[in-house]
Design a protein around this nucleic acid. Sequence first.
DNA 1: AATGAATGAGATTTCATTCAT
DNA 2: CATGAATGAAATCTCATTCAT
Lengths: 200, 200, 200, 200
Amino acid sequence: MASKREAVKQKKKERIIEAAVKVFAQKGFYTANVKDVAQAAGVADGTIYLYFKNKDDLLISLFEHKMKNILLRFEEALKDISDPLDQLKTFIHVYFELIENDTELSGVFQVELRQSSKFLKDYHNQQFSNYLNMIARILDEGKKINFFRPEMDTNIAKIFIFGAIDEVARQWILGRDAKYSIKEAAEQSCDNIVKGLLAF
Amino acid sequence: MASKREAVKQKKKERIIEAAVKVFAQKGFYTANVKDVAQAAGVADGTIYLYFKNKDDLLISLFEHKMKNILLRFEEALKDISDPLDQLKTFIHVYFELIENDTELSGVFQVELRQSSKFLKDYHNQQFSNYLNMIARILDEGKKINFFRPEMDTNIAKIFIFGAIDEVARQWILGRDAKYSIKEAAEQSCDNIVKGLLAF
Amino acid sequence: MASKREAVKQKKKERIIEAAVKVFAQKGFYTANVKDVAQAAGVADGTIYLYFKNKDDLLISLFEHKMKNILLRFEEALKDISDPLDQLKTFIHVYFELIENDTELSGVFQVELRQSSKFLKDYHNQQFSNYLNMIARILDEGKKINFFRPEMDTNIAKIFIFGAIDEVARQWILGRDAKYSIKEAAEQSCDNIVKGLLAF
Amino acid sequence: MASKREAVKQKKKERIIEAAVKVFAQKGFYTANVKDVAQAAGVADGTIYLYFKNKDDLLISLFEHKMKNILLRFEEALKDISDPLDQLKTFIHVYFELIENDTELSGVFQVELRQSSKFLKDYHNQQFSNYLNMIARILDEGKKINFFRPEMDTNIAKIFIFGAIDEVARQWILGRDAKYSIKEAAEQSCDNIVKGLLAF
DNA sequence: AATGAATGAGATTTCATTCAT
DNA sequence: CATGAATGAAATCTCATTCAT
């Protein structure tokens, strides 16, 4: 009985999160009202505050909740791959797939989360670190077997790689200068990372 | 006389823009108040409205203005270099120098890309396009002389490169996971872009 | 059966009233939430509305109920005393004893008199009148037998006495300027009332 | 110029305070809206927040502001009186005069200030202490010249006296059980305090 | 041109009350 | 009877913008 109620409660919380993703993606975090989210979720304004401390908390919770799933998705995809190069390629492809399959969520992650000092500065994000460190681990292994350049700094490279694919993805979402498909984006990004620019 | 007055006027406008860069970079566009900008600029709230139509206009003007300067700086640095590879390396080093000398500058890119929601979604910043296209031009030339991989998509690569160095710079500013110097950042970034990860 | 259920019902109602006295005394009527009272009473929010029409009604019921008990306690203490002076002294000592044994009780008077605004301005608490009139009756008897000053207005004096001992008690509870024991408070108050300030 | 502007500013602040006194007296602090006060003061809602941090601050400022004047009034009245008994009598008469001449203010002091734990508990009020100590000083002098009972505790008596006259005044304002004039109230209170109840 | 006090629309948040379970 | 999740009206407060000086 209690578990059922718990389940119902969880369902409503998720409904609100889904609504928030949609609304924040469309209007932006600051431009969107709590009322908008409530309406989209089909609940009363006050109900939001039964599940989240305030509007900021809604954004943070949204992030935590979704990020957990994303990390799982990565781990799932990588767990049977041993070659670091394959791992890296898979990582990148999964990344762009995630973006493609949930554009709205991506919009929130890519655009909205960034604009709040809460996330970029104050709120030291464990999940984000986890994410970066997934890349670092792959790079370290690649160096160990002499596949990757030994003088390459994995600490810088993990950020480099994240920044690169993140931006390619963002511009695809914003649809500005980006007149390319996700597939192209993934493959080109792979090549750029692995081979670099040089032709030789 | 009129030109002098014009100059004074221009000076105040710039003072406001500098203040806005600082304040928006620090607090974010929505979290920052017009009052904050006014205070930082040492003018009255109302004065801002003599130079800018509204808060949004201030943000847009800020981009245009700053980007123009940044572009000039790049052009200056690149004008005597003919080799595309040298151009690219110079571009990257100049970029990190700019960031190092004006930390808040990176906020301009930040803001440009991340405050996008609502009104910026449509607003297409020509200057930012110009910036990206500077990279593209270098890449195209490199391809033409068979220095860069022929199958590399310059349109994606320009974004890829911008994203990569921008993120490495940003993490350096935030000082979080980034325990590296600007010099290292620039060199590692160069190598990553040019050589890629592979050791061979 | 019905009577037992009645008793149980009564018990819960009292539990809510006790909780309300505590909570209102501590946080003030307007600052306290119905939820607070419910929690303190160990019932659900909605349960309160099975016993009281609304929050206002809870406050009013609280007075009536508590005052009835207080009056009973006084009547019990006074019933075998005939001398008005002894009656008055006893009244005062009982008052301070009541306060000492049930600190929150003073909140009842507090609330009664100070939360008056709006709805309580009209609401005339009969029990409180009864309480004041107990004092008046003692004073009248004292005048009748020429013990108390004939020109003394019992109507004013009853309020005077109530106000004096109530404030001394309240400051004792707050423990601010009041660095005295309840016993001292009672005795000093007695003397002040009976003898006045003059030394002769 | 600056002083004139300062004066205008001060005037508006006072206008808001006057309005707040009126509104709070009539509707009670919690029942009254900031909007009500703004309307009564003839300013916009937001204007209130230019002069006061928040609604609570308005109440506190009101208290501080008015209390200062009241204390001055007392000092003025007492400064040429040397006899402690006369001082005490004057004090009491001035007190009731103040109440009579500004009923609304009294309402706020008497009823509204009391109901907020902010004032009774958290906010240790210097002005209120000053006020109580005025009484204490008179009492001490009266004891020194053997006019007042030597065993009388001035620390308790000051609270006793304050409570007594405060309550007599409050009931006059509430107009409940108090069917007496302010003049009677003052004289009866004086006699009660000075002579006590006994006839002798 | 510059100021900054004033405005008031609008956003977030609270909480008494209801009602399906 | 009891519950407590849900409601939504209403209150406080913020802040971009205006305008008299």
